[in-house]
Each structure stands twice: as C-alpha cells, then as structure tokens.
Design a protein around this nucleic acid. Sequence first.
DNA 1: CTGTTAGCGCTTTCAC
DNA 2: GTGAAAGCGCTAACAG
Lengths: 360, 360
Amino acid sequence: MVTMKEISAQAGVSVSTVSLVLNNRDKGRIKPRVAAQIRQVARDLGYRPNLMARSLKTSHTHILGFLSKEVATTPYAGPIILGAQDAASQYGYVIMTVSADDPRSSEETEISALERYGVDGFFLAEMSNRKAQVPSSLQNYPTVLVNATDGHPASSTTPNQIHHTGIAPDERLIGYDATMRLIHAGCTRIAYVGCSEPMLAEGLRLEGYKEALREAGLPFDSSLVTAVLNNGPALHSVRELIETQHPDGIFCFNDARAWYVYDTAARLGLTIGKDISVVGVDNHRIFAETLEPQLSTVELPHYEMGYWAACKLISMIEPERELDFSTSPRPLRATLPPLDSEGDVLIHCSLVDKNSVITQ
Amino acid sequence: MVTMKEISAQAGVSVSTVSLVLNNRDKGRIKPRVAAQIRQVARDLGYRPNLMARSLKTSHTHILGFLSKEVATTPYAGPIILGAQDAASQYGYVIMTVSADDPRSSEETEISALERYGVDGFFLAEMSNRKAQVPSSLQNYPTVLVNATDGHPASSTTPNQIHHTGIAPDERLIGYDATMRLIHAGCTRIAYVGCSEPMLAEGLRLEGYKEALREAGLPFDSSLVTAVLNNGPALHSVRELIETQHPDGIFCFNDARAWYVYDTAARLGLTIGKDISVVGVDNHRIFAETLEPQLSTVELPHYEMGYWAACKLISMIEPERELDFSTSPRPLRATLPPLDSEGDVLIHCSLVDKNSVITQ
DNA sequence: CTGTTAGCGCTTTCAC
DNA sequence: GTGAAAGCGCTAACAG
C-alpha cells in the first residue's frame, strides 16, 4: 500500500500538501502545476487512501452496519442487502453485515462489534414486515428499519425514546390492489387465502381485500376466506375452499399459497387464468420461473427498500448531501417515497401482471 | 467512546500499562492488583477498543471482504453469508459485503473499496457452482471461493497464478446419491430432468445419475433424460416425458423442476411417492414448506459452505489458530471437509428423506 | 513491574 | 502557496 508519505517524497512536497491536493481542497491554495504533478505521481504509484487512518482522524468511517434478523431461513436477505449496497457504493459507503439471530451471541454483541469499527449508522432489517423493537444501544446512531416499522409508539410514555424511520410495504394497499385486479377482471366470488401465522401483513392485506370488495359493492363472505400454513394441511384447506365455494378469483397471501391453488386446479381440471383467476404476493423468483401459467402477483420490493433505506441513512449522516434515486444502478420496480419522509414510511408495491388472471 | 487514555487517567497508570492489561499481555509484567483495578475501571466505564485505531497499528483489521456475484436474483446469498458470519463472529471477525454484479461499478472497483479498508482476506461467492476466474488483484490476499472452484488450472502455463482454495458441492455425488435413493426404493425406470442452461452442475449430476444406474445394472436410456428451463416449456417437456415414457422414478436437477413433476402428477391423477417417486436437489425452504407430499431432496449446504469458507479463510490468515467446527452456533447439516484441504474442495451433500419416494 | 517514546496514515490548524 | 506540527486511539520497543 502506497502512502501519502511516499507520494510527498516522490513529488518533493510535504505530506500536508499531498493531503490537500488528493482531497481536492487545493483550489486557490496549491499551485495548479504542483497539484497536477502530485495527482500524476499518485496515479503512477497507484495510491489508494487508507480509510482506517482517515477514519481515525475524521471519526467518520463511511461504513454502514447492517443488522438483520432471520437471514438464515429466508430468501429475502440478498435483494435487501443488494439494494443497500448499490446505494452505499454509489455514495462511497460500504456495508458491514452481522446477523442478529445467532442463537449464541446476542444482538447486543453484534451491535457492539459494529460500534467498535465505528460505523456511521445502522440498518435494522427484518425478513418479514413487523413492528421492530430498536435496541436502546442504537438510539444515538442514525438508524433505519428495513421491512419494518418502529414498534415503539411515537407518543410513548417513555419520552426519550426516538421513533425511528422505517420502510415497509404498504400491506393494505397490496390487498386492495390485488383484489381490485380480480374485480376488474370480472370476478365476483373472490376468495382470500391468508396466512395462519400471526403476521402484520396478514391483517392488513385482509383489510385491503375487504376494502376493495366494499368499494366494488361486493359482499364480504367469510366462507370465502381461509388462513393456512404449510404443506398438506394448507393444500387441503385450499382444495376444500375451492371445491365447496367455487370462487372465480383468489387473492393469495403470497406466491407459495398460490401454489396450492395451482395444484388444486390441476387436480380438478380447472385452468388457471380461465376457469379461475389468481393473484399472489411476492413475485418470488422461484415461483416466477416455475409456475405455468405465470402468476400475476404483487411484487415485494426488497431491493427497493434496501436502496431507499441506504439513501435515507446516508442523508441522515450527511444532511447536506444531494441524493438522487434516478441514478440507481438497477431499475427500481416500485416508486420510492421521498427521502425526507420520516417515521413509518410505506412503499406502494407494484402489481406484476402475468397470466393467472382471466382476460375478458 | 471511552478511550484507554481515560482509563489510564482514572486508574492512575500509563496508557501502555492499560494496553498491556486489556490485551491480556500482563502476566508476569503488571502487578495483579493494578491489572485487576484497570480491568475494573475499564468495565465501569464501558470501555470498548477502537478497532480502527488498533488496525492502523497492527495492519490487521479482522475484517473479511465478501464479494458476491448475482446476489440480486438468487435466494442463496443469505445462507452463505450467514454461515460465513457465524464463523467470523465466533473468531472475532466481521464481514464487509460488496456485490460484484453491479452493472456500473466494476468488480475491481468493489475490490478496491474493500482493500482501502484493509480487509484481511476475501471470499468470492458464486450463486451457482462454477469455475470462477479470480481477479488478479486478489492474488496477494488470502482468498477462498464459495460455491465455486478456481477456474485457473493448477498446472497452468502462466506460472505465477495461484490456484485458490474453493468449496463447492460434490455434484456428481448428488446425482449418484439421488439416483441410488430411487434405485433402493425399487424404481427401475428412472428418468432425469436436467437443466438446459449450461451449468457445471448439470453435467456432473447427470454423470452421477449414469454411474448409479450402471452400478445397479440398469440400462441408461436417453429417452428417459430431458433438460428443461422454465415455466410452460419446461412443464410441457416433463409432462411429455412422463406420459410417453412412464418412469417410476424421477431425479430432478432441482426442486423447481420437481414441481413440474408434481403438477403433471396432479393432472394425471398420479400420486407422488406412490405411483411415481421423485428426488430433487436444493431443499429450498420455499419448496420444503409448500409441496405436498414433501419432497425428498439433496440439500445444497449453502450455510455450511459459508461456514467452512470463513473457517478456512481465518486459518489462512492466522495459521496458528485452532479452529473447531463442533462449536458452530447452528447445526451443520453436512459433514465439512478438513480445514487443511487445499484446491478444489468438494462437500458431500445430504439427502433429506421426506415423502416423495415410495416406501416398500 | 511500569512509564516514556515513537509511530501506524491521515487531516487540519497555524506559521512562514 | 506550502510546510511543520499536533493528534486521532492504539501498540510495542525500550528504558528505567
């Protein structure tokens, strides 16, 4: 690793001059010719600043700590991290990841590890949308929740608790949009296959479903609603729902639950997208690549949430900095909320139309 | 952040004494009473070392750089990172992640970012098993490939290229074990549903399939073999294979392809695990939680590869250090190769028996 | 046994 | 315009 000292020797100037020039603070201070020469030498020697040393002085590391729960078992971590990374890398930051669900070392231990490296701020990422408890050790850091909202009420009795910014899918709108899609396709007996595990998303998507029905003047019929978990029991519940209630459209809590509809349809000789319409939630790659006909589904914007969260975090760390979504390295598949949003920020998820809804 | 200086003041000793004690180098040098007092003060003040400062001095950051390709679109990143993190955290390391598939910033840029932070070594992770080209900028760092092997031949004509250690699934054995499972269940017409995309795993799993057939004295019949991609076309190929060839067992390249068998079975009124047996590869959570009957499948040990790779990397950085797999925070679902393995290390994946294979 | 000193690579104030 | 000097928090060689 070549240092400023070597450059200064080579260029016959002092280290401080080198520092000034390489940090572009030379305008009107250092003679242009000298500056140019220093830059040249730096380039020739392949100089790269030692960020540890810089951080020590500036106490500003440009490291963002990414703390995630349940990475082990869910497939969503990748896209969220990637989104955060893309934004970070764009603005000269880097991400240090730790997981908060190690059965042995506690969350506090992991946070502490990141603190010792002097991270400038934290992400707290959940793998399914929930109200998260922000550890008190993060109170003094810029912190953004990803796929979560702050579980600590804003108007709390414990007054010195900060209500942290968090970004999460607008679950109610997911239910509303998905159901509306079926309504607009002409479905009139629309079932909902929910999730029997307690999840924030479940109640909200169901609400959205009801709201869409109401708005369309369709009756809410609880016998068209079921909540299932996994594998056989789930499949049987869905099969029974379809066989006894004969819905013409089904809104499923997620793509996995839509699979039960596909399987049942195959068994009953029904054609998805013709005899029965289905809308899922997730647009998970695995289902997107596998199901036939392809499933119309509301995409959960994990990449986008990661991207937004990183932009938000950077803007909290450097309030004066101008950030711009339009320069994201990958296309954003959902409209990001403005960066000055605070508190619980909801993102409107896109419905991806494929072939599982009837076309009139 | 409380510093050693504050502790030294509080305890009435010099900073170097504090340093000695807090790094446990005080035995036989510092009076036990003084040492104890220093430790007490440190605890009272909640001292935590500034790792940046330490690194500056020791040029040893305890940061591992994790460089991954294709994180965007695959669900495997989480488990690999988690495995690496668990090992890292256990041995006092931390992981900095960057992705090498940003369409704009190049791999070199990302590596460079990690280098500037002084990472002690690199992971190079692929999302599907392949021969990876290790960037020349990593030649001088301890580097371990994850889910990949070094694409640069060991006996190369370019002599000063190092052949890096990489860990990857033993694909041939996957094909062999899966097929053997079907053979032992009594299947005699065993089909293979492969992947039509060029992938390292495809050829090797097919080889393992053939080898198992040969060993069992079953003929290889190319009309029982197909290679498919996604969605409709894949489903139709599988359906045709089943309808024309009537296999009694099917080894599928992965769980997703097994779904085509499930769908076809549902349509034809065949019962999986009775009329027809299926073995997949992946044990992907999404299929594990969804399919009914549950799919017997060879598990790809992403967590384990990440864990092994981190242990390997740490042992390269600190050769004298004693590492021990038995202390992993999560159960290891595959037997890890010994840590002194070099070059292309293959991991024997476990076949997870569920209910998609006939029981006699 | 413990303190002094120097220095890791960089930034920044203040003299010249 | 440029350099000298101090110091970020820590480690380590060397004195005492």
